[in-house]
Each structure stands twice: as structure tokens, then as C-alpha cells.
Design a protein around this nucleic acid. Sequence first.
DNA 1: ACATATTTCGACCAGATTGGTCAATAAGTT
DNA 2: AACTTATTGACCAATCTGGTCGAAATATGT
Lengths: 234, 234
Amino acid sequence: MLLYNRPQWSRKEAFPINDAFQKLDPEKQRRIWDAVIKEFAQNGYAKASTNRMVQEAGIGKGMLFYYFNSKEDLFRSALEYSIDFISRAYVEKLDFSSPDFITRMKQAVETKMRAYLENPMPFVLVANLHIHQDAAELVPDLKKRLDDMAAERMADFFANVDTTLFRDDVPPEHVLNLIRWSIDGWSNEIIASLQQVNLTDYDWDSSVKEFYEFLAVLRRVLYKEVDHGDSEGQ
Amino acid sequence: MLLYNRPQWSRKEAFPINDAFQKLDPEKQRRIWDAVIKEFAQNGYAKASTNRMVQEAGIGKGMLFYYFNSKEDLFRSALEYSIDFISRAYVEKLDFSSPDFITRMKQAVETKMRAYLENPMPFVLVANLHIHQDAAELVPDLKKRLDDMAAERMADFFANVDTTLFRDDVPPEHVLNLIRWSIDGWSNEIIASLQQVNLTDYDWDSSVKEFYEFLAVLRRVLYKEVDHGDSEGQ
DNA sequence: ACATATTTCGACCAGATTGGTCAATAAGTT
DNA sequence: AACTTATTGACCAATCTGGTCGAAATATGT
């Protein structure tokens, strides 16, 4: 509507020129996403400020509304981008082939760690969604997609686990919880300590080694006794 | 100073009349604290809105600045109140007399749960302090008091633990971590499920029973084998 | 070289929100 | 009645809000 006599140099309102953003230098895209997602993650939708976003991203105010047409579009795009990244870099790389639950958890936590280090903000946004109702209500479809994704992941995660590996004087669901919570606790502390130390000079090797030792301990206390010879491959 | 010739009906600026607030109906005090602390906990200092506070508390705007003189005073008072409550209802009730780590953890988690249910907002405020720099910077002394309190609690917690109770094919620090993380994971899930269900009709009995079973499992897998006969008293 | 198209900026807008004040009044107290 | 205390919400200047737009810079094509 009204398009016919609108001068061509102002196609702005005609349809979204998101492609202008896509054509941007990837580094700049990343800077913008970081600033935008961080602001939304910290403040939800209503209280997030587009002014602070452009300031942190180091771009002019106009550009944000040139790439995305409105704050609402921007939020939707930011969440879509986050879901895409998490799917691609984490969820789709999960490997449920092993029936050994600890092996599964190990693979999952490593994959998540790698994805988180490559691009942490999407994880933060999604994790904080549930405390910002206004944001979640704005995009019910995306919220549902996320919930479904989480539910499906959970189901896959616990499907076809070989519980006969577990010691049999303890109910298997307790063993599963124990493993889950221990590994969560471990990775939470890693992430917490990560935020205080420079990423580059963090001692990953010794951290990974500790993690493997920790998994071995879990095996020893929660699995059936096994003819020893170090069960952990790689 | 300046007190002598100031008209008595305006002692307002002379010194804080916090006592006016103290004399309030305790229920009203509580309503106000809930609103105030919630707003600060969610938004930090700068982004918290006194307007929203008075609206949620159901009092007139003027009263907030009558009880407390400024937003800054208000924040300080709110954090002091929170620290006091946490100390009184949680930290001071911790019992480190038993050398059995699981017994200690059990007592601690029960105490914290009770305190949290009685008055959750102070815990939320203190837990969120570290993600709101502006708030923490405003009251460096209180921040330090909190950090010291946490450090001291941690130290007491691990002091004089009888590690000979633990199975000796696993390093004791791993056993300690395993217990800590498992119990944290358990209580996190309780709190999460609590937020979706009506508090009054939550099935506490079965939840507590599950917790005890869970502790028994921890004992079985992490402690030395012991002549059975159910070790858990009460 | 020029002309046209695309990016980029930031001053600017009206409307909302900010922390804080204060005159008016309601509720107690003596 | 006289006086003190508690309470309100309209009001203030200052700041911030999402969003616009003209102008300038840059890229592209010829």
C-alpha cells in the first residue's frame, strides 16, 4: 500500500531490509548481537534500552532501526538468532549413541562448554527468559519452541540408558539424579570461576584432567564394580 | 547540629525518622520490604524504580521518602535488613557440632529452607547482588560484610569434618564436593518446582521423606560400609 | 569524472519515567 | 479544641524512551 508513489530511495517501510544487516562484516554483526542480547538478557524486553545497545555496540542510533525496524522486531530476531546458535552449536551436536549415562553426560558437557565459550550471550538470554515474563509473552511461539526443544532433549537424554551398569543396591533414578546434579555442580563452578579469570590464560588442560578424574570417581561410586584397568577411553 | 532552631514539626532533615517506620504495623512493614527488596533484587540500584515500589506496596509515594530519606538510604536499609534476617534466621542457626558432613548438610539445608519460606526476598537480593555492580558499589562495607560472612561460613562448614567416615578409595575432597553438589542440585530443583505450585498445598511430607531417602543413598555410596540398621536418626 | 545507491550518524521529537517535594488533609492524642 | 503525626498524590525539573530524518559519508557503476 502507498508503495506506488513512494520514492525508491526510501524502501525502508516497504519491507524489512534485514539483508542489509546480513551483509555486514561478521565481526560487526557479532558486536551488535553481543550488545543487543546482553541488554535484553539483563533487563527483559520493556526495561531494555536501545540507546544502551547502540552505545555498547558502537554504532549510531539510526542503524539499529535501519537493520531492524522496531524494538519488537529486534527482540524477536535476537531470540531467533540465539535459538539458532544454541541448536546448531549445542543441541544438534549431542550424541545419544552410548548407553553409558556418564559417557553421554561427558560428551554433552564438553559440547555445551565449547559452544558457550564460542558465544556465551545466547545461552544467557535463553536462561534468563523465564524470569522476564514480558519478554516471553512477546514471542509465545519462540518460547514454545524452546520449551519443546528442552523437553525433547531431556527425553532423548534419558532414553535407552543402560541402567544395568549401575550398582543395584540403589534405585536407578537416584543414580541418574546424582550424576546429573554432580556434573551440573561441577560445570557451574567452572563457569563461575571463569568469569573472574582471563579466558586466554585459563588452565584448560588441568581443568579437563580434573573433570576426567571426577568422572572416574562417579563411575567408582555409582557403577557396579568392574575388573579394573581404567574404564575411561581417550 | 542545626537542631536547636529548627522548628520541631520538621525534624525530617535533622535525622532520619526510621523509627516512624519501625513503629508501623509489622504486616505493613513486611509488605513494604517485600516490594522494595524485590524491585532492587530484580533491577539493581539505578534501574530500580521507587514508583513501582510504592505501587506494589500499596502506599503513597510520599511515605517512602518519609520513612527513608532518599533512594540511597532506602537501598542501604533494605540490604541491612536482608543481611540481618539471613544472619538471624539462617547463619546463626547453623550447627557445626556434628563431624558427619552429611548430617551437617542436612541441618543446613533444612534451616535455609525454613528461613527462605518464611521470607524469601532477602535471599534473592543477596544472591543477585553480584550481577548488579552499581548496587554493590554503593555499599562497599555491606558487600564486604557479606563476603566475609560467606567465607567464614564456608570455612566453618568444612572444618573438623570426620573424613574417616568416607570410603577410602576416593579422595575426601571429591566426596565433599559430591555431597555438596548433589544436595545443591536437589534443593535447586525443589525451589524451582516450588515457584510453579501453590505453596500451601505443596506436599512437604513426601518431599522431606524423599530427601531423607536421598541422604541415605549418599551415605551408602560415599561412606564406608557399615553394619546396617538404618543410620539416619529422626 | 560524475551520478546514483547504500550506509552511517546523531540531533531531534513527543511522550513517559525518574527521584524527590510539599501543601493539604486525615487520624490520633491530650 | 489544639496540636502532633501519618498519609496522600498532584506536581516538579531532569532524564530517558523508542523512533525519525535530513544530511553527510562511502560504495558502486559507468
